[in-house]
Structure formats: C-alpha cells, structure tokens
Design a protein around this nucleic acid. Structure first.
Length: 115
DNA sequence: CGCTTGACAGGTC
DNA sequence: AGACCTGCCAAGC
C-alpha cells in the first residue's frame, strides 16, 4: 500500500507510475497463459524495472488485473513471505483456467503454457 | 544519506 | 528437494 499510490487522486493521469504499466501489461495476458515476473519486467520498457518491482505491483493489483497469471521464474509459484495464502489461491485460479502443473507436488506451472 | 523490506532470479550445497 | 546467499531496485523511515 504505497502511500504515494493510495493518496494519488486525480492528477496522476500523466504521471503514469510503473504500477500502472505493469497492470496494463498483465491485463493483456489471455486466460490459460502465464508469464513470469522477470518476463514482464523485461517486456515492459521502463527504467531498470526488475522482477521485484513487478512483484510488489502485483500485491496491490486492482480487481480487473489477472495477477494470478504472473508466476515466478521456471514456473514456480511466488514465495509470498508476507502472505502464504496467495500461493494456494493462485494455484486454484490457474487450475480453473486449465493450466497444467508439474513437479513432485504439482507446485510449478507447466511453462509450455507460457505466453 | 543510510538501512530495511519485499508476490524476484540464479547459483551453490 | 530445501535452505541459504548474492544481486537487484523502488519505497519508506
């Protein structure tokens, strides 16, 4: 909840911060497809935007952003130090879209579903 | 200005 | 596989 964003009211139409850029990008991901934080960071042209920033943006994603289609590198689900729950939720949402999971405990996305 | 905090990534053991 | 470690960079204090 970056105060800078919460406080932003009306005059931020021009000052498009990187959160908005990330959201715009994520909204383009079709159902059943996924991208990694790193890919998003690379594809979004912005000064030194890294996977970390994409991650923090996802934490405050608006309802219309399919945040669950963004996974960690190698198809790993996010660690979620602050909220261990998101992993489970994301797993459910992706499975509902037909995304396959692989690995010992089916905890990683089959990257052939990558965008 | 320095230090801490992450829904990260990549490497080592 | 799981537990660390390092590099990364914006944000807050």
């Amino acid at each position: 909840m970056p105060a800078s964003r919460v406080m932003s009211s009306s005059s931020d139409a021009v000052a498009l911060d990187y959160f908005e850029l990330v959201y715009q990008f994520v909204r383009l991901i079709p159902p059943g497809k996924v991208v990694t934080y790193g890919q998003a960071a690379d594809l979004i042209t912005r000064a030194n935007l890294t996977a970390r920033q994409v991650g923090s943006a996802m934490r405050w994603a608006p309802a219309d952003v399919p945040w669950h289609r963004v996974v960690g590198a190698g198809g790993r689900l996010p660690v979620g130090k602050r909220d261990p729950q998101i992993k489970m939720l994301q797993l459910e949402l992706l499975r509902a879209e037909g995304v396959q999971f692989i690995g010992r405990s089916f905890d990683r996305v089959d990257m052939s579903f990558c965008l």
